[in-house]
Design a protein around this nucleic acid. Structure first.
Length: 600
DNA sequence: CCCCCCCC
């Protein structure tokens, strides 16, 4: 039992309980607390997919209060990074008054201890005496400081509706069941005006992404409303927005993380916010350039990097409609030593004019796989040049000190090169590989598959190879030792290397794969020379090693190519890379699949 | 009410 010596922040629950929205000093503290429970909260009966929210009871060892986890931290619950009795520093939080109740939202946290013993006997605040001890595990009673995730009470008058009162509504709490709200949000992205023509008629539209400290939401205006608001709404400015319709978002078409989106109509009121404090700041969740290979193709991510090179604008012809489209490629680098190309399209390409290697932060760019890994801006991506943030200054410092002189590594092609993972998006079943006739054309096809080794051809898995660096040619036994034709040398001993032929199967079929030395090293757990030595010393032990390598499942990256032998043409599947399964990664991939647009 | 995000 690890009894923690981490002190919780004394009195923080009492302070939160008594706080008001304007208590900036309080909202800027970073208290250490213990989570007594984390509970999933269903949204209030929406007809569509409910927003998943988590309510956390947090304790300072004496009292507890209730808080909501901002949805961008949901992954911490999903990946089990936090749970009951976790001790954490709340790095960022905010409080809002909704319907006269206080809503504490946790925006950022750092885990100090995932599992700890419960500290003290925390009691609720303002609750009838005598109940304190039992209530820790259950939903906090209504008499405490908190409110449900989605404040209900349609028809109940909202104080915020009129003047510039303290009660600005958090974006996270918007729902169709809410009227009389008013948000204070920054426009982090504004689209061009788009015109369309379809069976339902024609029209025009534009959209913005609005953001506050609790979340983001997309807002769209159509037709006449475009004229009302297109010029008024400007990127990076902050506005009060009210009286827009809240609709269920069509998640398939949106990268904005919200269950809902706004439709701006003729009744919508938008007023620029001229306040100078307490303004929402754009939030990023940066991925290092080295980390891009961990992401799937088509994933949306945020990056911060140095613009090493700016390409010229060029024009491509779209395949779909033969129309021309401008593009510009930026070469981004960061302190991980990786570089990646990012493509801007259309107006974004033409208007880009930053020179002299600025720092650039992108929110919501799409991961591609051209040349290993690439990035593409979407119309919904936002970009900030030389942002005044610690991240940006650190990166600038690094670039001036060392980065400018560094040579950078590009992401190499799928599955190739050092550290390259096996790409999930190209995973195929064995019957699919055969049905698609991979390798049956003149070119080489690449694929990845997850399969189990059913059988290994035990004969000829080893050959005596030239021991000189990266020669690997077969050597022949001569009277003085082992002769390599290529190197024209005779060596006292060969280095034994693997050449393995194996039958693999998945739930759809089976195939023969062949692999070289690195494959043998991995599946047998010893080098070729070690296995050869074992074979000479104890033949049955060596056989056992081979037998034990069977019935294990791996992720394979393979090349399928044609091979002619004895006048017969057949397809050979060469193992390019083999990886033991990481069950956490596999499980997460399935979770992602379930959450993907494909599964909805 | 759009829903494309493109090319090598």
């Amino acid at each position: 039992m690890s009894s923690p010596n981490i002190p919780l922040t004394e009195g923080i629950c009492e302070r939160l309980n008594a706080s008001d929205k304007e208590d900036e000093e309080l909202w800027n503290t970073t208290p250490t607390v213990q989570f007594l429970s984390i509970k999933k909260v269903a949204s209030s009966g929406a007809s569509g997919a409910p927003a998943e929210r988590h309510r956390i009871i947090m304790s300072d060892g004496v009292h507890f209060v209730q808080a909501m986890l901002a949805t961008q931290l949901n992954y911490m619950v999903e990946e089990n990074l936090i749970g009951k009795n976790t001790i954490a520093i709340i790095e960022r939080m905010t409080g809002n008054m909704i319907q006269e109740k206080r809503l504490v939202v946790i925006l950022g946290l750092k885990v100090l201890q995932r599992e700890a013993a419960k500290i003290g006997s925390p009691a609720p605040l303002n609750s009838p005496p005598g109940q304190a001890q039992q209530q820790v595990e259950v939903t906090t009673p209504a008499s405490t400081s908190s409110v449900p995730a989605r404040a209900p009470a349609v028809g109940q008058q909202q104080r915020a509706a009129g003047g510039r009162g303290p009660s600005v509504f958090p974006i996270e709490a918007l729902s169709p069941y809410q009227n009389n709200w008013r948000i204070k949000a920054r426009v982090i992205q504004k689209s061009d005006i788009k015109t369309y023509a379809n069976q339902r008629g024609d029209g025009k539209l534009f959209s913005v992404t609005l953001m506050d400290d609790t979340g983001e939401i997309k807002a769209t205006a159509f037709n006449a409303v475009v004229d009302d608001f297109y010029d008024k709404l400007q990127e990076d400015k902050v506005y009060f927005v009210s009286k827009a319709r809240v609709n269920l978002a069509k998640k398939k078409f949106s990268t904005v993380s919200n269950e809902y989106e706004l439709s701006l109509d003729r009744n919508t009121e938008i007023e620029e916010c001229h306040e100078t404090t307490n303004l929402p700041v754009i939030r990023y969740n940066f991925v290092k350039l080295s980390g891009l290979e961990e992401l799937q193709k088509d994933a949306i991510c945020d990056v911060i990097a140095v613009v090493k090179e700016v390409g010229e604008v060029s024009t491509i012809t779209m395949k779909s409609n033969n129309k021309p489209l401008e593009k510009r490629e930026l070469t981004l680098v960061d302190e991980t030593g990786f570089s990646v190309k990012l493509t801007l399209w259309g107006k974004q390409a033409i208007q880009f004019n930053a020179t002299d290697q600025p720092i650039i932060a992108f929110k919501g760019v799409k991961v591609g796989d051209f040349g290993g890994r690439s990035l593409g801006a979407l119309s919904s991506s936002s970009m900030s040049i030389n942002p005044d943030t610690p991240d940006a200054h650190a990166l600038k410092g690094w670039f001036i000190d060392a980065g400018a002189k560094t040579s950078f590594q590009a992401h190499t092609k799928a599955g190739t090169g050092a550290g390259g993972g096996i790409r999930r998006d190209e995973m195929r079943t064995i019957s699919d590989v055969k049905d698609a006739q991979l390798g049956m054309s003149d070119k080489t096809d690449w694929f990845s598959t997850r399969a189990t080794i059913m059988h290994i051809k035990a004969d000829n898995i080893l050959y005596p190879a030239c021991p000189s660096e990266s020669c690997n040619k077969k050597v022949v036994s001569v009277s003085e030792g082992w002769r390599c034709e290529k190197c024209d040398m005779v060596y006292p001993h060969p280095q034994y290397r693997y050449m393995v032929s194996m039958a693999v199967a998945d739930y759809t079929g089976q195939a023969w794969f062949s692999g070289f030395n690195d494959v043998g090293d991995l599946i047998f757990g010893m080098s070729g020379s070690e296995l050869q030595e074992l074979r000479e010393r104890d033949e049955s032990k060596a056989t056992e090693v081979v037998t034990n390598a069977q019935c294990h499942t791996y992720n394979f990256s393979c090349k399928a190519s044609q091979d002619s032998w004895n006048d017969q043409t057949r397809v050979r599947y060469g193992i390019h890379k083999i990886q033991p399964l990481d069950y956490a990664v596999e499980a997460r991939a399935y979770v992602d699949l379930l959450h993907s647009a494909w599964a909805q």
